[in-house]
Computed example of a mutant assay.
Amino acid sequence: MNAANLSRLLLLAALWGGSFLFMRIAAPVLGAVPTAFGRVVLGTAGLLGVVALMRLPLAFHGKFRATLVLGAINSGVPFLMFAFAARILPAGYSAILNATTPLMGVAIGALAFGEALTWPKALGVFVGLMGVVILTGAGPIAMTAATLWGVVACLVATACYGLAGFLTKRWISQRGGLDSRIVALGSQLGAVVLLLPFAIWDTATHPVAWREVTATVWLSMLVMGLLCTSLAYVLYFKLIAEVGPMKALTVTFLIPLFGVLWGALVLDEATTTAHALGGGLIAAALWLVLRPSAVSQPQPPVRT
């Protein structure tokens, strides 16, 4: 990997790791639904700008409905789940739990798509689960019902990412393919459609005191939508084109490091042995699942 692509990889990891910081800032103030909805609206706007600047034709070739459904699964539900978790969990927790995405892909592939479950993959899933248990049970925040629900929300999000990888192959790749930037735009539109009724309901039942929202919260939303979503999509697809999907997926190992780093630097979140042990086990699990000899399933997205 040359210097330019390594820089892209590090920037992508910093952006996706930073998304957990910005959700942690915005979600407790705005609520989970407005945070997730605002992110996908801004992400859609940013991707529309990218498509316009690159003069890409808005041609979905009969796959528009598929991209909308993929967006609901791959962006709408996960962003909402992570925003819900951000009201409860430190940013570093969510960033580490996000790394279970490939493990979810292995489990879903074996259960629903007939993928072979080899011993390294099975061991990887088990080791990853142990990492989640250690992080949850021995971390710096008390184990409560709310904490547990936050962890469950993160795992629901990563399960959606894992499922979306297989559905993308079935609905897009095996039907002739589609420009990845158009898929990204369609998926964000799908997330907007999914979250819109929830946003309307939430606004009606839990109105936000918008005048009291600080500039920090608004800036966090802008950065999360335009940089951590729109720009991150462009970087990710550029990396896939330049170095291939396997090397691009090494960003999965780096996201937790940046997520924990940003949380500690900006929000003074504690870093403990549980972060190292739990995160280390999840990293080992990722190596077992993603090592070249073990890869046969379509690689699930790692977007955050």
Rank of each mutant, 00 (worst) to 15 (best):
F82R: 01
A4P: 00
G62F: 14
G186S: 09
L89S: 02
T144L: 11
L123E: 09
L257D: 01
M1Y: 10
P28W: 09
A52S: 13
L30I: 12
F253P: 05
W287L: 14
G109A: 06
I88W: 08
A153I: 07
H61W: 00
G124P: 01
P90W: 12
Y93M: 02
V127L: 14
F126W: 11
A95W: 04
R291L: 08
R8Q: 08
I108A: 10
I96Y: 02
W262P: 00
K121C: 06
S296P: 07
S180K: 14
P102S: 04
L281G: 02
V223T: 11
H275G: 08
T67K: 06
L11E: 00
T250H: 10
R55L: 03
A66I: 09
L281A: 05
I108M: 11
R65Y: 07
L254W: 05
S220V: 09
A4N: 03
R291T: 13
I182S: 01
I172P: 05
G279A: 12
G46M: 03
W149Q: 05
A283I: 14
F79C: 00
G162S: 12
G114A: 05
I200W: 13
A184E: 01
T101L: 11
A107S: 14
L227A: 15
A36I: 12
A274W: 00
L47S: 10
M143H: 04
T203G: 13
V192L: 07
K63F: 07
A270I: 04
A157F: 04
T203E: 06
A199K: 07
G131E: 11
H61S: 14
N98C: 11
